[in-house]
């Protein structure tokens, strides 16, 4: 592709200062999102998915967090070097985010209308927009996420809504600013499976309609398979494999990705696989070389000392593992 990517993360390193040293959480994350692309980011809890996204939006608490290296380029401009004013413009109109828990993402003491109105007012940088217009736009936003009776909802408080409705409101808020990139952090995880299905279908339809790029963060592999074009697999602060979604599910290569795929219980039956032995490493003293080597069934001598480079194993299929050297 000739067009420059919408978002490019290069060798991003984030450390957290704690008592007794630094947690070396992100260890050189590289990822690319092109315009209109739906990208999945998969990994277990604690692997750094959310830290990466927060670093992209510059909403990490600094300190204790420290971005010690790398670049985050949004439309070619480095987010890490932006002034507060530019950052404000980036958040919202450039990139917006839907969080995992809609209950925590909404303020309980303001009505939906007030919160949605704030987002809409904020997205007009000149501030010249009257209350009537805001209300109209808010109504429009609620209608787009298929919420019934939007008039009444505007004057409701979050507590009066069900979990699924709250998540729809959060999606409406995230899309009301017409962002170019939407980051969805486990948007269905806190909801029931039938509601999750509805939310994912809604999100999918909305972003396809607007040609918004998406980064979907999740630990549910099935969700990634259904809604993304390309997937990054993350383990202990590094991207270990990336591939087009179909390729990854047909032919996972990194030992961790394989273990993860086998761990998912199948609807067709046949028992549950043992999973991957061991646990995610301590970030205070992460393993040298490949961070997966203490749990890897195919570990070699070189894995213990040298961080593996990224090998190309197919079209757009990259694996950071010495098994695929040469």
């Amino acid at each position: 592709m000739n067009t420059p990517p919408l978002l490019e993360v290069r060798n991003l390193q984030v450390h957290f200062r704690v008592f007794g040293g630094y947690l070396k959480v992100l260890d050189g994350v590289n990822l690319v999102v092109r315009a209109g692309e739906k990208v999945g980011l998969v990994g277990e809890s604690g692997c750094g998915k959310t830290t990466t996204m927060k670093a992209i939006l510059r909403i990490l608490p600094e300190p204790p967090a420290q971005i010690v290296g790398g670049h985050v380029l949004f439309r070619g401009k480095d987010v890490l070097k932006m002034r507060p004013q530019e950052l404000r413009r980036l958040r919202g109109r450039g990139i917006s985010m839907v969080f995992q828990d809609p209950t925590a993402a909404l303020n309980p003491v303001f009505t939906i209308g007030q919160q949605l109105g704030d987002v809409i007012r904020y997205s007009h940088s000149d501030g010249r927009v009257d209350a009537g217009q805001i209300r109209l736009k808010a109504l429009q936003a609620l209608k787009e996420v298929a919420l019934a009776d939007p008039e009444r909802l505007l004057d409701s408080y979050p507590i009066q809504l069900s979990g699924g409705m709250r998540q729809r409101v959060c999606i409406a808020m995230a899309l009301a600013t017409q962002p170019e990139l939407l980051i969805a952090d486990e948007p269905g995880t806190s909801l029931d499976v039938t509601i999750q299905d509805q939310i994912l279908r809604l999100l999918h339809n909305l972003v396809v309609e607007r040609n918004t790029s998406v980064i979907l963060i999740t630990h549910t592999l099935g969700v990634v398979r259904e809604v993304t074009d390309r997937v990054y697999v993350m383990y202990a602060g590094t991207i270990v494999e990336s591939a087009p979604t179909k390729v990854l599910f047909a032919n996972p290569m990194f030992p961790y990705t394989r273990g993860l795929m086998q761990s998912v219980p199948r609807l067709s039956g046949g028992g549950v696989a043992e999973g991957i032995p061991g646990r995610i490493p301590n970030y205070l003293n992460p393993p040298t070389g490949c961070r997966f080597h203490p749990r890897c069934p195919h570990v070699m001598e070189v894995c213990r000392h040298e961080k593996p480079p990224v090998f190309t194993v197919g079209e757009e299929h990259y694996v950071a593992c010495y098994l695929y050297a040469s």
Binding site: T194, L221, G222, E226, F249, M261, R266, L267, S268
Partner: peptide
């Protein structure tokens, strides 16, 4: 049936079961 059709699955083979 609604519950089953809502499950995100990881393979084509399972997709057919929904």
């Amino acid at each position: 049936q609604m519950l089953l059709s809502s499950i995100p699955v990881v393979s084509e083979e399972e997709e057919k079961l929904k």
